[in-house]
Amino acid sequence: MTFETRIGRRFAQLKEEGRAALVTFVTAGDPDRDTSMAIVKGLPAAGADVIELGVPFTDPMADGPSIQAAGLRALKAGQTLKRTLAMVREFREGDGETPLILMGYYNPIYVYGVEAFLKDAKDAGVDGLIVVDLPPEEDAELCIPSRAAGIDFIRLATPTTDDRRLPKVLTNTGGFLYYVSMTGITGSKSADSGAVGREVARIKRHTDLPVAVGFGIKTPEAAAAIAEVADGAVVGSAIVDVIARGLDADGKAKPGLVEEALDFVARLADGVRGARSRAAE
């Protein structure tokens, strides 16, 4: 099953431009709904090519301390999956082009109801899903229905995904393949661009999908290094850390938090945009 989505159009556009994508992750509702909404709305102008919006969950087993803390802050502020979809709808009122992906765990979707969720997600303007606890063996649960609804289902591959496992991972995957640059949880180490480059080349022997790389990208320089060897650099924990540093002792947003977060994203974007031109010199 093939269909055109904003994700496919964006990566095709960037391929024509000869550069990689900056994919940014923030947790919906962190530290509160209004601050989070302001950050999300500002991401495209700051240079984000694709937005991953994390759906907070009480048991985020694949997330490191930074994103776990962000999820807890969002849940404390009342964020839910329904409110996350409402944020997507509001974002779409002013931006009909930037791809937006929901990233999280299956439980909130299961509780919501798969059919109802997919209808509401599509209506809101969601382009893709990353559900980290649903392996390919469970495609009938959500992956296949999401693709039938016109929503890309984006799969993760890791350094332990060998050539025997990779075809299974790629089955029904759409939009792009998210390559996790290291084993472990988010935000725990730094990515090695040399090793990543070899893995991206190996994966591309199996698929025409773009390959975006995440985990361990903490600085504009690191994002630039990954952008030289992959189709996209995914930055999450580092952005979430900037948000956390902008909170007061009560966990409330201090003046200037939104601007600081978006300034950091702009510096990441500068790194990514300059990567291919430097590599060609």
Rank of each mutant, 00 (worst) to 15 (best):
T2Q: 12
T2Y: 13
T2I: 13
R10Q: 08
R19T: 13
L22S: 00
V23P: 08
T24Y: 00
T27K: 09
A28Q: 11
D32K: 07
R33M: 08
R33T: 12
T35N: 11
I39P: 12
V40N: 05
G42L: 01
P44A: 04
D49K: 08
V55G: 04
M61K: 11
I67Y: 03
R73T: 02
A74L: 03
K76P: 04
K76F: 09
L81M: 10
T84V: 13
R89P: 08
F91R: 04
G94N: 12
I101S: 04
L102G: 07
M103P: 03
G104M: 03
Y105A: 14
Y105F: 11
P108D: 00
V114D: 09
V114G: 10
F117D: 01
L118F: 11
K119Q: 14
K119C: 05
K119F: 10
A121Q: 08
D123A: 15
A124G: 03
D127E: 11
V131S: 04
L134M: 13
E141D: 15
P145G: 05
A149L: 11
F153E: 04
L156K: 10
L156N: 06
R165Y: 10
L170Q: 07
T171C: 09
T173Y: 06
G174L: 14
G174S: 12
F176N: 02
Y179F: 14
T183F: 06
T183E: 13
T183R: 12
T186L: 08
G187Q: 02
S190N: 12
S190T: 15
S193L: 02
S193D: 14
S193V: 11
G194W: 07
G197P: 12
I203F: 02
K204C: 03
H206C: 13
P210C: 00
V211E: 00
A212R: 09
A212V: 14
I217W: 07
T219E: 01
T219K: 07
A223Q: 00
A225W: 04
I226G: 06
E228I: 08
G232D: 05
A233S: 15
V234D: 01
V234T: 04
V235L: 05
V235P: 06
I239D: 08
V240C: 04
D241C: 05
R245W: 05
L247Y: 02
A249S: 11
G251T: 12
L257K: 03
L257D: 00
E260R: 12
A261T: 15
A261D: 01
D263T: 14
D263P: 05
D270P: 00
V272Y: 07
V272P: 10
S277T: 14
R278W: 05
